[in-house]
Design a protein around this nucleic acid. Structure first.
Length: 315
DNA sequence: TATAAGGAAGGTC
DNA sequence: GACCTTCCTTATA
């Protein structure tokens, strides 16, 4: 694998370890999200990398390469932020090496998760991972996706007729000018994507593959190269990413291929984004699923239940 | 009211 | 023609 990333915060040195120490249920300051007080945290659904982006927001998330492995344990990508361990008794000898090793492993793991999440979104949206390669349509897809993930109001209209290159050339102030409330969040999110793209470009192919391939996801994609995705494939892809999508669709019995759509509107919206069908809803999506009955791809389980379907050929 | 089932017509590739 | 998408009616929990 290439050089590990060091994710630091220019003004809040504790933030990095703060979110590393958090459990699954990370709750960034409400004010940073611009969340109305009536919106409960249970309504905020964010994949790992997006929680990361929001956790840092509206500050700047910096992803920089760590120095060479031989660097001292207290190394940082830039001067200033001191790690929490420095405020305590400095570890020495074996203990310090173990701590440093663990920290690097965690950092590598986190970066891997970020890369995987970006990779997942790229495949679901069918867009390039590098924002510089995005067309107008790709930018709108990414914006719709971001709106969806962050439960933002419609902000994509503020960024119309922009290519990815246009977007990348914009400053944070430009983003704020177009959306005073969410511009900084979008800017931070885009920054993560750009950093991830830069990382992928630097990593050897086998490394980027290992970072972005923890299950049969890539198998699904490789089985159907450059073909329009089918609904059943899309659903399976969501199911194969429980880390990100278990709140909207999940296996009830993976061996038998039985799954349940937990949030029909959410899944329909994801499918609509993927297919550029803004008017997609569960009524239409379910009609498409039912077309699979005759084809022997999906059926209702023996004991029919609402929103529960079964792949005829389990994964 | 939301979901399920399926007919019918039309669009896109 | 395959694969949806859209719209529709009817049935059910």
């Amino acid at each position: 694998m290439g050089s590990p990333l060091y994710i630091s915060h220019p003004h809040h040195p504790d933030t990095r370890t703060a979110w590393l120490d958090e459990a699954e249920d990370v709750k960034p300051p409400r004010s940073l999200l611009g969340l109305p007080p009536e919106l409960s945290w249970s309504g905020v659904y964010l994949p790992y990398c997006n929680r990361l982006a929001i956790e840092e927001n509206p500050w700047v998330l910096r992803m920089t390469e760590a120095p060479a492995p031989a660097a001292p344990p207290s190394r940082t990508a830039e001067p200033g932020p001191a790690k929490p361990s420095q405020a305590q008794e400095p570890p020495s000898g074996m203990e310090g090496q173990v701590e440093e090793c663990c920290l690097e492993q965690v950092q590598t793991m986190v970066v891997g998760e970020v890369l995987k999440d970006v990779d997942t979104a790229c495949k679901l949206l069918n867009i390039a991972s590098d924002p510089l390669d995005w067309s107008y349509v790709h930018v709108q897809k990414w914006l719709l996706w971001t709106e969806h993930l962050y439960r933002l109001p419609q902000v994509s209209t503020m960024f119309q007729e922009l290519t990815g290159r246009d977007l990348c050339s914009m400053t944070e102030a430009d983003f704020r000018q177009r959306s005073s409330q969410y511009g900084d969040m979008l800017y931070a999110h885009l920054d993560i994507w750009r950093s991830a793209a830069a990382m992928k470009a630097r990593c050897p192919p086998e490394d980027s593959k290992s970072a972005a391939d923890d299950d049969s996801w890539s198998d699904v994609m490789c089985d159907y190269p450059s073909q329009p995705i089918h609904l059943w494939q899309f659903l399976r892809e969501l199911l194969l990413k429980p880390h990100n999508y278990s709140r909207c669709i999940r296996w009830l019995n993976k061996e038998k291929g039985i799954f349940k759509i937990e949030d029909s509107a959410h899944v329909a919206r994801l499918w609509g984004i993927r297919k550029n069908r803004p008017a997609m809803n569960y009524d239409k999506l379910s009609r498409s699923i039912r077309q699979y009955y005759k084809k022997g791809i999906i059926r209702k389980p023996d004991v029919s239940r609402r929103l529960v379907y079964q792949f005829v050929k389990p994964v």
